[in-house]
Simulated assay, not measured.
Amino acid sequence: MFVSSYFTQLKSLWDELSSIVCVTPCICGNAKSSIDKQNQDCAMEFLQGLHDRFSAIGSQILLMEPFPSIQCIHNLVRQEEKQQEINIRTTPNIDSAAFQAFKPPSRPSGKRQRPFCEHCNKHGHTLATCY
């Protein structure tokens, strides 16, 4: 799954959850820390659900100070995904050409094939002449 579609699915679930569980504003500032904690939890959930190929960017994001917003994290991971796609497209596939160059011939040339019996699994005769 692409990062964008994964993020969209998670975002719709988070929006649905936030519509059910409302944080009421208050004077003491407790709501801000609660919202920050909720945003950090969403970011961690997003990073944990990513494929292993994004582990390097995930580690870099976790070390950022101050911790970035979920939108910033999404943008960084999308940039990494695009970069990985570019690297995959530009890497030439040399292995298949090398294997074709050194492929041994399927039949030895100049040598006659010995008959093979499929009934007794032996060379030297065919099924029609098997006893």
Score class of each variant (00 low, 15 high):
Ala56Val: 11
Gln60Lys: 12
Val21Glu: 12
Pro25His: 01
Phe2Val: 05
Ser96Tyr: 06
Arg112Lys: 06
Val21Lys: 08
Val21Cys: 11
Leu50Ala: 03
Pro25Trp: 02
Arg78Phe: 00
Ser34Pro: 01
Tyr6Gln: 07
Ala31His: 06
Glu65Leu: 13
Pro25Thr: 01
Cys26Glu: 09
Leu47Thr: 05
Ile94Ala: 13
Cys130Trp: 03
Thr8Met: 12
Ala56Ser: 14
Glu65Trp: 07
Val23Asn: 04
Thr91Asp: 05
Arg114Thr: 13
Pro104Leu: 14
Glu81Lys: 01
Lys11Tyr: 10
Phe99Glu: 07
Ser5His: 08
Glu80Ala: 09
Gln100Val: 03
Cys117Asn: 00
Ile73Glu: 00
Tyr6Thr: 00
Pro68His: 11
Tyr131Cys: 08
His51Ile: 12
Leu127Pro: 00
Glu85Asp: 13
Ser19Lys: 12
Thr126Cys: 07
Gly124Lys: 06
Asn39Glu: 11
Asn93Glu: 10
Val21Trp: 03
Phe99Pro: 00
Tyr131Thr: 06
Ser19Met: 11
Gly58Met: 00
Asn30Met: 05
Asp41Pro: 00
Met44Phe: 10
Ser109Lys: 07
Asn121Trp: 08
Ile57Phe: 06
Thr126Ala: 07
His123Trp: 10
Pro66Gly: 14
Phe2Gln: 06
Ala128Asn: 05
Thr91Arg: 08
Cys28Gly: 03
Ser18Gln: 13
Glu118Thr: 09
Cys42Pro: 00
Leu47Asn: 00
Tyr131Lys: 11
Asn75Phe: 04
Ala98Ser: 11
Ala43Glu: 02
Val23His: 05
Met44Thr: 12
Phe67Met: 12
Ala101Lys: 08
Ser18Trp: 02
Cys72Val: 15
Gln40Val: 07
Ala128Leu: 09
Cys26Ala: 09
Ala98Val: 12
Leu127Ser: 12
Cys120Gly: 02
Thr90Val: 14
His125Phe: 01
Asp36Tyr: 01
Gln71Met: 13
Ser4Ile: 11
Ser55Asn: 13
Met1Ser: 11
Ser33Gln: 12
Pro68Cys: 13
Ser55Met: 10
Ala31Arg: 02
Leu13Val: 14
Gln71Trp: 05
Cys117Gly: 03
Gln84Ile: 08
Phe2Leu: 10
Asp36Gln: 06
Cys130Asp: 05
Gln40Ile: 03
Lys111Cys: 06
Ser4Ala: 15
Gln48Thr: 02
Ala31Leu: 01
Ser55Leu: 11
Tyr6Cys: 07
Arg53Gln: 13
Lys37Arg: 10
Lys103Met: 13
Trp14Leu: 03
Ile35Gly: 09
Lys103Ile: 05
Leu62Tyr: 10
Pro92Gln: 09
Arg107Cys: 03
Phe67Pro: 07
Pro105Ser: 11
Cys72Ala: 15
Ile27His: 07
Lys122Gly: 02
Ser12Arg: 15
Pro92Ile: 10
Thr129Cys: 04
Thr91Met: 04
Glu65Ile: 14
Leu63Tyr: 06
Asp95Ala: 09
Met64Thr: 15
Glu81Thr: 02
Cys42Tyr: 04
Phe99Asn: 02
Gly124Thr: 05
Tyr131Gln: 07
Phe67Tyr: 13
Lys32Val: 14
Glu45Phe: 08
Ala128Asp: 08
Arg89Ser: 12
Val77Pro: 00
Pro108Thr: 11
Ser106Asp: 10
Asn39Val: 00
Met1Lys: 01
Ser59Ala: 10
Lys103Leu: 14
Glu118Asn: 08
Arg53Ser: 15
Lys11Glu: 14
Leu62His: 11
Phe7Trp: 03
Cys26Asn: 14
Ile61Phe: 03
Lys11His: 12
